[in-house]
Amino acid sequence: MTPIVLENISKAYGGVGVLERISLTLPSGPTCLMGPSGIGKTTLAYIVAGLTAPDSGTMTGRENKKISLVFQEDRLLEWESALSNVLFVTPNAKKYAEKAKSLLTQAGLANSMHKKAAELSGGMKRRVALCRALIANYDLLILDEPFKGLDEETKPGIIQMVQQHALSTGDKILLCITHDPGEADALGGQRIHL
């Protein structure tokens, strides 16, 4: 998989610089983006995703790559079930139904997959958002604080699930934003501090 290379990326909002001349390379495998709140991690991730345009700088290697993303907010269809939310991003609901159920079961949501997203707790919604990102067909997976709101008992199983689905083949690029060094240790790969 061709790495994604960012060179001298800068971005400002309302005259306030958020990112200044950031250069980094995202090879296959995991990369953890770390740093204090408000430093521009999400902005950088959204630039990589193509959702935000940088003011200056260049990015190469992202062309033709399919993206999957866990947003900072869950962005679920609140009126749909957990299962329906996961299947929403698949091209064929019937074909992917078993895989979606298996992911939700692995995420500890076997008994909640038919509940509407609006009825789920914050941690459950986060897991649904993660299952949705994992079922999509992607080359680049961006996770913006994917384990936020998960209790310490649930977290290791969910990290293992990400490793199993996103990293087992070794040909996908994973960019994970986290504050937690423990999460970065568990995912492995390179770490970038902003």
């Binding site: 999957s68 329906s84 929403f88």
Partner: peptide
């Protein structure tokens, strides 16, 4: 935000209409 999510995941226009706009 939901429309952006659907765009990122390359969800078809028909599905976006049915699951997001209609609701």
């Amino acid at each position: 935000a939901l429309l952006e999510m659907a765009r990122v995941f390359r969800v078809s226009h028909g599905k976006r209409t049915r699951y997001i706009y209609v609701k």
